[in-house]
Amino acid sequence: MDKRIKLPLFLGSVCLIASAALAGVNALTYPIISQREEDARNRGYLETLNLESGAGLTMSDVQTATGDLAAAGLTGYVYFVNDDDQTLYGAVYNGETSGWEAGIKFQVGIAAGLFTGYNNIANNETSTIGGLFLTSLGDMIEGVPASDETALTDAINAYVSANVAGATANFAGVTRGAMVAALLACGVHYASLEASL
């Protein structure tokens, strides 16, 4: 057979077999990974608001994010209203954004205008760089006013300078930028949600 046909044909066949193997393994693993993320997300609706149970509150259906919220990487949100007076108790935002790598899946809770918690569902960041930022983010933002950019930046800087030796530059990287933008969009949206209810 002519080399010009044989070589691409062989390489193409190898690629095809490799693709089939990948598709097979993906069919096996994707449902497991998705289910775990879904479970983590469902648990996170209460945990990010520091709630033991949802007693006395009603949780809305998951609302799809649109506009600025969607542009900042948020996919949807739920909100909780007090059963007594139908006022807003808090909201939990679901997000999926990109840092150094794509696939940062997270939740952030806001109540009374303050960040209450952060749930790191999945990410592909390097554990000692972007991953370290994401796992520490809950400690950085808890109690910080949600729509105040200066307060949020100060809180992150204060945590970094107190706890992160030698990795400050990495902390100020792409992951931080993406997450700060997403958190601020949540804060702005929460303020409008509070006003509308």
């Binding site: 390489l11 190898v14 490799a18 990948l22 393994v25 096996l28 990974i33 790598e101 960041e125 390097t126």
Partner: peptide
């Protein structure tokens, strides 16, 4: 192609069955 496919398969399996380890190893 073979090496890349094998690494991706191992990565997918680790993400499914050893998620914390996959998270720790990250990009490596």
């Amino acid at each position: 192609v073979i090496i890349a496919a094998m690494v991706t398969i191992i990565q997918m399996l680790m993400k499914a069955f050893t998620p914390e380890l996959a998270l720790t190893l990250g990009v490596f």
